[in-house]
Every structure is written in structure tokens, then in C-alpha cells.
Amino acid sequence: MNIFRLSGDMLHLISFLVLMYRMRGQRSCRGVSLKSQILFLIVFCCRYLDLFFSFVSLYNTMMKIFFISATATIVYWMLTKYRSSYDMDNDKLHGDGSFMGHLPPHGVLGYIIVPCFLLALIWNEGFEAFEILWAFSIYLEAVAILPQLFMLQKTKEGEAFTLLYIFCVGAYRGLYIINWIYRYFTEKHYWQPLVWVSGVVQTLLYADFFYYYWIALRDGAKFQLPG
């Protein structure tokens, strides 16, 4: 554990709190992508299956349980008490409802989940059920924010807490990269290319958002995507 990873984890933890605080405070989930939240729930459920058979630290265990339960709560709220404020029209991916012309699966399954799973079958750290699901969760996490970013792109502007949420998740990823660099130079056998590549891809997806978020903060102006 180093300060970069700890800060990253704390930002990740804060991101859930920001989102939940915002949804409760405004009694609304407008601007939040249910697709991204469901993808994150799948990510955590697949990756933290090891809660049942391997123990790293009390810290890891508690964070894992928190990540799963917080995301499950957010998804549950979006499907129940805040359902009426869910902006389904802006949470549609290209190809939604028209996969192969008629099949029911949506863009998120065809373009995100299936490719990630296929990649996990090819590139993993061991060809066994848990390792494949673990690799799948790493790839899926890398792209899980896409529906949320697409939603932001459609609406062009976001509500302050939603932006803060995206910022926290993006910053957490950025700090993880610094953590890997630190670990690479301080730990003898530290080597995890699968995680590094996915993590860098994941962080790059936030680059555009970071740029416009920074411009908005700097100018004290409203966050506005171009185009």
C-alpha cells in the first residue's frame, strides 16, 4: 500500500458517496447512466468473487464489500424510488434495440460486455473460471464509464455533483497509474501488464472530460461540451 493507491481508493470511495448524496439530496437520478452503474455492479461482483476464497487484508475486504453494496444500492434506487427521473432516452447506446435488426440485446451487451468477455478468454492470468471473470472485470471496468460519458455528450452539460462523480472516478484511475509506476520501482516482482494496459485505456477515456471540466473550473463557467 502506498499513498497513491490509498488516495485513489479514497477518491473511489468518495465517488460513490457523492453520487448517493446527490441522488438523495435531489431525489433524482437525472443525468446518471443506469447502464454504467449496472456495468460497475457486474465488474465488482465478478472481481470480488474472491471474497469467498482469498483474503488479502481487512482493508481490501471492507472496501470490496462497500463497493458492491454501494453500487447495488445506486442501481436499486435508480430502478425503484428514483426511476421516474431516469433519463432513459439519453442513456441509449448506438445500436440499442436494433442488434442485428431484431434481437433484443442492447448495445451495451453487443458492444461492451461480449467483447470484454471474449478478450478475457484470450488474455487472462490463468485459464480458470475465476481468473477469466477477473480479467473480464478488469476489461469491463475500463469501458464501463462509456455510457455515462455518452450520456454527458448527448446532454452537453452535467449537473455539478454528476461531474464531481465522474471527476472522482477518473482521478482514482489516474492515481492508480502513479501507484503502478511507484510499485514497479519499489517492488521486486511487481508485474501486471494486463492491468496496466486496461488501466491506461480506462484513464485515457477520461482525458476529454478532464479537459473540459478543468476549463469550466478555471473560468468559473458552466461545464459545456463542444459540438
Partner: peptide, 10 residues
């Protein structure tokens, strides 16, 4: 595969 690191991150 070198699994010395394991899945120790979140």
C-alpha cells in the same frame, strides 16, 4: 505467468 503479485488491488 508470474503470479507473485496476485490480485492485491481493488
Amino acid at each position: 505467468t508470474d503470479k507473485l503479485t496476485g490480485h492485491d488491488e481493488l
